[in-house]
Design a binder for these strands. Sequence first.
DNA 1: CTTAAAAAATGAACTCATTCAATCTTTTTC
DNA 2: GAAAAAGATTGAATGAGTTCATTTTTTAAG
Lengths: 208, 208
Amino acid sequence: MTGLRAKQKADRNRRILEAAASLFREVGYDSARIEDIAERAEVSVGTFYNYYENKGDILVATVSMEVEEVLEAGKAIVENPPSTTLEALQVLIDQYFDHSLVYLSKEMWRTAMATSIQQPDSPFSRRYTELDGRLCDQVSILVQKLQLRGAVMPGIDAVAVGQMAFNNLNMMFLEFVKDEAMALETLKERVARQNRPLAVLISTPRMQ
Amino acid sequence: MTGLRAKQKADRNRRILEAAASLFREVGYDSARIEDIAERAEVSVGTFYNYYENKGDILVATVSMEVEEVLEAGKAIVENPPSTTLEALQVLIDQYFDHSLVYLSKEMWRTAMATSIQQPDSPFSRRYTELDGRLCDQVSILVQKLQLRGAVMPGIDAVAVGQMAFNNLNMMFLEFVKDEAMALETLKERVARQNRPLAVLISTPRMQ
DNA sequence: CTTAAAAAATGAACTCATTCAATCTTTTTC
DNA sequence: GAAAAAGATTGAATGAGTTCATTTTTTAAG
């Protein structure tokens, strides 16, 4: 009842997560050994595995924290978006992209995405997938908002359009992290080009 | 000059690829050990690594063969597509999806996709990425063809539209293989819904 | 306070993927 | 056709992730 056990658990969990995140940042994912993470967190290797199913899992956990921040920042844009469809979409998406490399390297993104695909049933992969779904919803909600405002034509399936725009940007982001040489600006330009036809076509003519 | 060495090399390569593909199908990717693959192919473990960089690599190789078949089948559709935009897109995409699970399980797709993300510089990952690009091009070419025929409005950026449609279907396929419970029909229906707004909007009014 | 039961932590042992120095085979040279 | 060079094969050794029987710590019961 005292909760000593619960407190220790939360504390260990925090230490492990912080140890892993810092090590990943310092030496990269591959070179960070479980033994090292455990040592820095002051727990045993076995204990690490009581908290995380495997090495990929803890990376997905750190990436998930990052995605949550992006979601939060996106809220502000969706609440008060620019008036034209193209600009609104672009501002939201560019914000996603800008956030992406602040704390995480391309290598970390690659490993996290690969892990969440390979083990879709581990708890943190589920969480990552869920966050992806919330990002997708955010884009759909933006389109719906623009529709209510009259910037997007009535009768358009805003959810379908939002999903397509999100899936496109997500796939482009995947290509971006796969290509170590690609610049953030290139990614943004390409996605902007892809969004233009859709944005123009769904917009009410006079606001185009 | 005799080419004995080249012949032996090709033969060993074929044996390794067949051994791996059959083992993956029989026991799944994770349970198929390199040692087992090597034994079935009648080579040593070391030789396996002379032909493939790592375990993921050979899976991506088997998947690549599959994608090439899909590409080939897609050609026929692009050469002589249905007349309406929506139908043409849907026929091509459904064909991609129908082919996908003939030889490969969802687990194999997951691992292949994860590997191609995690090690984008290995030769077979490059090849997988390149095939993905060709699939993307195929969709774009279909849209261009429809535009030439007059089914798609002139002035539309056909390449951008094709890329967006492809990235969307690719991401949806990824969600599909991540969810062991999702049926192929569900995938098709969802993508069809997503494609509708885009297809309708880019179509010339009277052909809609 | 003592004891029993439950929960967690531990690290040595285990499993594989991967490497590499030694060996063998094929090709080229003279 | 013998010898040297080049190209491939081999499998034992390596190393990192993961497991699990044992031990320790915490909680609950009497």
